[in-house]
Every structure is written in C-alpha cells, then in structure tokens.
Amino acid sequence: MEVVDPQQLGMFTEGELMSVGMDTFIHRIDSTEVIYQPRRKRAKLIGKYLMGDLLGEGSYGKVKEVLDSETLCRRAVKILKKKKLRRIPNGEANVKKEIQLLRRLRHKNVIQLVDVLYNEEKQKMYMVMEYCVCGMQEMLDSVPEKRFPVCQAHGYFCQLIDGLEYLHSQGIVHKDIKPGNLLLTTGGTLKISDLGVAEALHPFAADDTCRTSQGSPAFQPPEIANGLDTFSGFKVDIWSAGVTLYNITTGLYPFEGDNIYKLFENIGKGSYAIPGDCGPPLSDLLKGMLEYEPAKRFSIRQIRQHSWFRKKHPPAEAPVPIPPSPDTKDRWRSMTVVPYLEDLHGADEDEDLFDIEDDIIYTQDFTVPGQVPEEEASHNGQRRGLPKAVCMNGTEAAQLSTKSRAEGRAPNPARKACSASSKIRRLSACKQQ
C-alpha cells in the first residue's frame, strides 16, 4: 500500500481520502468484538498479612480480608486513616479506646483483636480482627420478611446475652447493641463488635452510672431520649438488646419516626405494640426488656430465667442462610486472597510482582521504634555504632529488605517449588510478632 504524507491529507475531501486508502487503516468495530484482558491483581503485604478484597466500608474506614502468612488464618483488617478520623467527632479517641478494650477481652461471643499495625509515614492504622463471614443486618436484609425464624432468632439472642453478660462482668457498657454490630462466623457463632462508643466503668465505681451516649437513635432507651444527665449503663444495653430481639423476630421496630426528633419523642413516651403472632412468652420477655422505668427493666439474670429464653424451640421454618457475597455473588464466600496468593505462588519472584506497604510497620504502639547501633568497621576489626531503624520486634528492616532482594536475584530452581506461605513470609520485609 502506498504511504501517504499526513501533511497532504488536509487537502483532500472525505471521498478523496477514502480513495487514497484511509479506509485501510481506520476501522470501526462493535464493542462486543473487544476482548478485555482482566487487570492483574497485584499482591500487597502489610507486615506478614497478605491483603485481599474489600469486605465493607463504614464511617471510620474500610475493612478488607487478609491472610496471615505465618498461621494461614483468615483475618479481617480495619484500615483507618488518621486524616479521616480527625474529621469525625471523637474519632481518634474512640478508636484508641476500642483498641484498649479489645486487647483485654477474651470471649467467644466478643470479636477478638489479633494485631494492631501502624504506618507512621502514611498515617494509617490497621486493626487486624478475627474473620466473620457476614453481619446479622446483612442476613436480615437478604430476606423479604426482614426477620429470622424463632428457632434461629433464639439461638442468636442467647449468644448475644452470653457476650453481653461477659462485657458487663468486665465493667464495660457497649451502648450500641444492634444487628449491624453483631457479626457471624461460618459456624454460626455470634460476635459482638464495634466497641468504639463503649465505656469502661471505673474499677471502684459504686454502680453503672453513665453520662454520655453515642449509640444508634432507634435503639436508645427513654432515659436517653428524654435527655437525662445520668442513667444506668447496663440497663441501656438491656433495652438495646430488647429492641434487637423485637427486630429479628418481627422484622419491625418498636419505635419509629420520620426524623430523629419524632423518633425520640415516640421513644420518650414509651408506647409501642407487640405483634400478636409473637406469642405470650416472647411478648412477656419483650415487655420486661423494654420496660420504661430502668429500675423495673429486666436484668440479665431475669432474662436467663425467663421461660422463652430457657425453652427449646424446634425449627418450624427453614433458617435464613448466609447470603452470597454482594460484589462477586459467591454463595460460598470464598477467600478473596486466592488470586493474590496464586500471583505470588505461580509467578517468578520479581520485585515488580508484589507490593510491600512499607519497609517498617510499627505494631502494638503509636510511637516510632527505637534505634540500635549499626556496626561500623574500624582499624582493629571492631565496629562502632551508628543508628539503624528496627521493627518493634527488633528485626532490622533494611537488612531483611536487602537480603530479600538478593535472594530474589539468585538463580535457584529449587526455590520455585516452595509453598505459597513460605514465599509470602520471604517477601515480607518486616516480620511481626
């Protein structure tokens, strides 16, 4: 084909351009004929944790799935940006308080904090938690009735009371019990989460009196709706648990309003109706937990002794299953770290194939690490110290990083047969305790 000078094309009309061969290198194709290559998922490591896909996002930050490269346990990490926390009232204080509380709590029905990582340079905090497959609110939203069968609701409620009793025994008032803060594992274990607005009572406090509340409006008791200066913290949790039980068994809320002012007005009056299909035992329990006067409201001991709580409820309806993943529609909620794991395991070791967030990740503290002497050669063979940054567990980050890069360049065919977990650990520049 004859090559045409581009400067001469402006002298031709459209018809003349076609005659000189423009149609031979300008093609129009339908979008259905285009085959897009999927974007390669680059592996990203935060300390010893391999990052997966997004699980959810809230006002405080994002939650992603991660894999512990040492234990191969599935975890969830809450990623918090200090810049964003400053824009939220009491944001930083709530996060630090939640970390302090979770560090000393150990119960099967309370979410466990596994690790805390802090990135000084990017001003990011990573709260590594045990993995929960789904939230209770997500399960309720997945069915038209917006409720659980009585047998399933009873099982979840009993676990909620177990976890709540443990928190109260530790002198902690949750203040925000609701389905949105109750998570579930694949085995059906309920976990109380989000202790950001919780309050730890003084060890020598005479009672459970509280003065502040930041919980969700629909789950607040009349004493808070009416603006009382002080109130019983434990009875606030009992009320919120009662509203939660009402919601998961009926699909409704005892109090509603077009806006928060109308909602608080209705809560302050204390008038509500219980659907007739709840039955006398459940209705009596709800009335005891939603008692207007805090002094007359049920205690956890009274809830445990109630006939509806103690009764064994046979399954009359099919239980609400864990819904498919909202993004991938995966009904099994498979591990989202698998594509990243395959990338590390299947590809040659190259620095361009993975990302390490930083050479140094500070753990379990908000301060910069200490310094240790770096050896410097002298005339008599002895070495003197220069400062060298280290990880919180004493690992020399720069030395590990250099060693990792040197190993990656060394030709050794046997290394390709290593397991995925050992490869992740070798790529991680800074081991965590």
Rank of each mutant, 00 (worst) to 15 (best):
T249D: 00
L400G: 12
C73D: 12
W332Q: 13
G370W: 11
L85P: 11
G163E: 00
L50S: 07
R87P: 09
S283L: 05
P179E: 01
H306V: 02
F231G: 08
K83Q: 02
K191W: 02
G56F: 01
D229P: 15
F354N: 14
E376H: 05
R425E: 09
E376Q: 05
R310L: 11
G346A: 14
N259G: 02
D355S: 12
Q305M: 13
G61Q: 05
Q305V: 14
P221I: 02
A429Q: 14
G233V: 02
S283I: 05
Q305T: 12
I274F: 07
L182T: 07
F354E: 12
E57W: 04
S59R: 13
P275I: 08
V66R: 00
I224E: 06
I99R: 03
V173R: 02
D208P: 15
E265I: 11
R104F: 08
G279Q: 10
C418D: 14
L290C: 06
L290F: 03
S325Q: 11
L54K: 15
A205R: 09
R415S: 13
I161S: 00
G251V: 00
Y118G: 09
R87K: 03
H168F: 04
D352S: 14
D258S: 11
A414G: 08
A205L: 03
Q159G: 07
I161L: 05
S283P: 08
K64G: 02
L50G: 05
A417I: 13
K287R: 02
L182C: 08
P203H: 03
Y36H: 11
T244E: 00
L195G: 05
S419I: 08
G276S: 11
R75I: 08
M129D: 11
S59N: 12
E92L: 06
R87T: 12
G270P: 11
L353G: 13
M392I: 11
T71A: 12
M22G: 06
V66L: 07
Y131C: 02
N90W: 03
N247C: 07
D176A: 00
Q305K: 02
H345V: 08
N266G: 02
L113A: 02
H154M: 03
L80A: 08
V34C: 05
H306T: 13
Q7Y: 08
N412R: 14
M127Y: 09
P38D: 15
P217H: 02
P38R: 05
G135Q: 14
G270S: 12
R39D: 08
S69G: 15
K329D: 14
K146D: 02
R28G: 03
K403N: 11
E138N: 01
A218Y: 10
I356H: 13
N380P: 14
L282G: 02
T71D: 12
P314R: 09
L182P: 00
P275W: 06
T363V: 08
Q112A: 09
L17V: 10
T189G: 05
E33T: 15
V320C: 04
K96T: 06
S421G: 11
L341H: 01
H306E: 08
I303C: 02
T24L: 08
H154V: 01
L285E: 00
G408Y: 12
C73M: 15
G346D: 02
S232I: 11
Q8K: 04
K83C: 11
N247G: 04
L282P: 02
F148T: 00
I360K: 10
G10M: 13
T212N: 02
M139E: 01
P324H: 12
L190W: 01
E293F: 06
D277R: 10
D358W: 12
V3M: 03
H313R: 00
A241P: 03
P323E: 14
